[in-house]
Simulated scan of single mutants.
Amino acid sequence: MAFGTASPPSADSVTRLSRLLEPAEWVASGVPPLRSPREVVRGLYARHRPAPSTAVAAVFHSDDRLAASASFARPAMRTSATDGWELRNALLSQLRLVIPHDLRRRTPARTAVLLYCREGEAHWTEEDGAWMWALRDACTLHGLRCGAYITLTAAGWHILGEGRSGRYPRSSARPAAPIGFGGGAPEAHRHTAAR
């Protein structure tokens, strides 16, 4: 009897797979739950009107006031697979544009939350795992506390790792113009709240 041997995974694929978080890893990392998830989701949706493949990064003060937020299109991947590294770089560049880092603080005072509007079902996907890794790493590099990861699909919103969800708002097939902009949706929409 002969046994075939499977070729070992490439170093690149192993590295890429390590740059995503499974739901159990996300829960174990101790991400603080949102106090008012419905208000957070509705507020970010009203401010940015994300279409599918749009991410909204938001930073909140310790008293839950919005400090700053930015919406941006999901970056095009260099390979066919989603890589948390590239998502992290895109997210970090947006955070750097809207709010100064808190790296001099001993403990993070502000919390970053990521809302990702996408097509498909509300359950966890590898792309979600890559975004979770990206959010956690970007927060570390910017001196922020890692907050909730929220998906927005046609079924509504869902906070992964917490199990909380709602039917409205939900993603739409047509992008709407963000509040404060005329015409079509811009490539990136940034908002800095009063500090």
Rank of each mutant, 00 (worst) to 15 (best):
L103V: 14
R104H: 11
R104V: 09
R104S: 15
R106V: 13
R106D: 15
A109W: 07
A109P: 07
A109T: 13
A109V: 12
R110E: 03
R110D: 02
T111W: 02
A112T: 03
A112W: 01
A112C: 14
A112E: 05
A112G: 07
Y116M: 09
Y116E: 09
Y116R: 09
C117Y: 00
C117P: 01
R118I: 01
R118F: 03
R118V: 00
R118D: 05
G120N: 13
A122F: 11
H123T: 10
W124A: 03
W124I: 02
T125C: 10
T125D: 11
E127L: 12
E127G: 12
D128T: 03
G129R: 10
G129M: 10
G129Q: 13
A130S: 12
M132C: 14
A138H: 00
A138P: 00
C139T: 04
C139H: 03
L141C: 11
G143E: 06
G143M: 07
G143K: 08
L144C: 11
R145M: 14
G147A: 06
Y149Q: 13
I150A: 05
I150G: 01
T151H: 09
T151A: 14
T151M: 12
T151E: 06
T151R: 15
T151F: 06
L152V: 06
G156P: 09
H158E: 12
H158V: 10
I159L: 15
I159S: 10
L160D: 03
E162M: 15
G163T: 02
R164H: 12
R164D: 05
R164L: 15
R164K: 14
R164T: 14
